[in-house]
């Protein structure tokens, strides 16, 4: 130890070492630094993610042998033709998009007052607690939550019991139950961006609007909504795409309801190319949705 003491002292002045030298070299070569940083994730993205997407798209143009269900690698647009012309497929696609939109609208309607409360009304020291409370459902397993809803909605379940005094009964299993459950599942994804946006909304703007003669409704339409719209859109990207891709919830609480995901799931054994063609539908719909959303500037706030 004592022998290295002088060396240690000089190291104190300007530390040396292979790691340090490498760091220095990297510092002088920003391109190399970037390459090292991004190679692995880019490979992942290009090969596994985009690769599998393109395989999906390509296989959608193949067909199957109707006896053996084996994939026949012959190019044809039959599957896409069937998607458009077969009434069942059309109905299921429209229904799936409808469910996704309904869930998104419901989430927005429920999340806005909630986020307004947590972000602007609640006492500051309660805020973190409330945000955690909103997030806690995300810690529970997806299946547990959906089965909980199955119990709630089942015949003679909680929903029926609570509505009986009003002479009503629960929605039972079906399309409304699916929308309800999906809304519950994805609500936090809508509340969080809205909460953040409303937190960042300066008090002064609301005061200014009222000061200039605007009633609360006008202030909401002309000041609050335009300013949180990007966050609302960002949240809707989550709720919309998660709903569009879901096929488990609908199996558990949807009764006989079929969504795109169910068709893909049932076709995957019998008619892989058809499943692939069906699988491209949500991708296309979500791309269209993102293009529409981009106009609100939401993507820059994601």
């Amino acid at each position: 130890m004592t022998a290295t003491a002088p060396a240690a002292r000089s190291a104190e002045r300007r530390p040396q070492g292979p790691l340090r030298r490498a760091a220095g070299a990297l510092h002088r070569r920003p391109r190399l630094r970037l390459a090292l940083l991004l190679t692995a994730p880019l490979l992942w993205l290009a090969v596994l993610y985009l690769g599998s997407l393109s395989v999906l798209f390509v296989s959608a143009f193949w067909t199957t042998d109707s006896f053996t269900s084996a994939v026949v690698r012959v190019w044809s647009a039959d599957n896409f033709h069937a998607l458009v012309t077969t009434p069942v497929y059309r109905q299921v696609i429209v229904r799936s998009v409808g469910v996704a939109l309904a869930v998104t609208v419901l989430c927005a309607v429920i999340a806005f007052p909630l986020a307004f409360y947590t972000a602007r009304v609640a006492r500051p020291r309660w805020r973190p607690l409330l945000v955690v409370a909103i997030l806690t459902p995300l810690w529970a397993s997806y299946l547990v939550k959906v089965y909980a809803w199955r119990l709630i909605l089942s015949q003679g379940g909680l929903a029926d019991w609570m509505l009986r005094p009003f002479g009503l009964s629960g929605p039972g299993f079906g399309l409304p139950a699916t929308v309800l459950t999906l809304t519950y599942l994805w609500l936090p994804y809508m509340v969080l961006p809205l909460h953040t946006a409303l937190r960042q909304l300066p008090d002064g703007l609301l005061d200014a609007s009222a000061d200039l003669g605007a009633r609360p409704g006008r202030t909401f339409r002309s000041v609050v909504l335009p300013l949180v719209l990007p966050s609302l859109a960002a949240g809707s990207v989550f709720t919309f795409s998660l709903s569009l891709g879901d096929y488990i919830t609908v199996q558990i609480v949807g009764g006989k309801t079929q969504l795109i995901g169910n068709l893909v799931y049932s076709d995957i054994e019998l008619n892989l190319p058809m499943a692939a063609a069906l699988g491209t539908v949500p991708v296309v719909v979500i791309v269209l949705y993102l293009l529409a959303i981009r106009r609100t500037g939401a993507l820059s706030s994601l």
Binding site: D207, D211, A214, R215, V223, L227
Partner: peptide, 27 residues
């Protein structure tokens, strides 16, 4: 505030960032 014939110039101006200058003034 919206029932009073009083307008305020705020310390941090509180201009609406999503509106143009003209829209702000015409609000």
């Amino acid at each position: 505030p919206f029932e009073r014939d009083v307008h305020t110039v705020f310390q941090d101006y509180a201009l609406f960032p999503h509106m143009t200058v003209e829209q702000n003034v015409a609000y």
